[in-house]
Simulated scan of single mutants.
Amino acid sequence: MEIEYRDTHEFTPAELERLFLSVEWSSGHFPDKLAEAMKGYKTVYSAYDGDKLVGMICSMDDGVMNAYVHYLLVDPEYHGKSIGRKLVEMTKQHYKDYMRICVIAYDTAVHFYEQCGFAISEGASPMCITSLWT
C-alpha cells in the first residue's frame, strides 16, 4: 500500500459518500452537497490508495491569522497507518504563519489531536446549530 497525498477540491459524490459513511458521519448521506462543499474550502488535502479515497482534511481560514479544521477523516480500514497525522502535518505546515489553528474534536478524538499539538482551550466550548446527527 502506497498512499498518495493530493491537494484537490474535486471529488465525486460517490467517493465522498463512501468515505464519510465509512466513519459513520451523517453528512455522508448528502454526497452531492459534500462534493459542492469541498469546492468552498480554502484548503483540502486528501489521501488515496490507488483510486480509493481513504482520508481527507478540510480547512477554512481568514487569510492571515485564524484557520479552522472542519473535517478530518480516515477510513477505519486505514487507521494506524499515520494517514491522519500526515494530513494534520500538511495542514499545520500550510498554516505555519497563522496565529491560531482550531478544531472541534469529538471526545473520542481529543487524545489524537493532543498528540498532533492541539490543546483544549480553557474557558471555551464548541457550540453548533445542526440538523446532522453525527
Score class of each variant (00 low, 15 high):
Y45H: 11
K81H: 14
E24G: 05
Y113W: 14
E10W: 08
S131R: 14
E24N: 14
V23M: 06
I120H: 07
E4N: 10
A14S: 13
E15V: 03
V110I: 15
W133Y: 14
A35G: 01
F11G: 02
T43H: 05
Y113Q: 11
E114H: 09
I83T: 09
E15D: 12
R6C: 09
E10R: 11
T8P: 04
G50Y: 00
C116L: 08
M60F: 08
H29C: 11
D97G: 15
S26F: 03
S59A: 15
Y5H: 06
W133R: 14
L53V: 09
Q93P: 00
C128K: 12
D107R: 14
C58N: 02
K86S: 11
P13F: 03
Y106E: 14
Y68F: 15
D62M: 04
A37T: 10
G50T: 06
G63S: 02
A124E: 15
V54S: 04
H9T: 13
L72W: 10
V88Y: 06
Y106N: 13
V88H: 05
R18G: 03
G63F: 02
N66V: 13
Q93G: 07
Q115P: 00
M65F: 14
S59G: 11
Y48T: 08
S59D: 05
E77G: 04
G55M: 09
D61G: 03
I101H: 02
Q115C: 07
V64S: 04
I101K: 00
S121R: 12
I83S: 04
E36I: 03
E2P: 03
L16N: 03
F20K: 01
G123D: 10
S46M: 05
I57S: 06
F30Y: 02
P126M: 13
H111G: 07
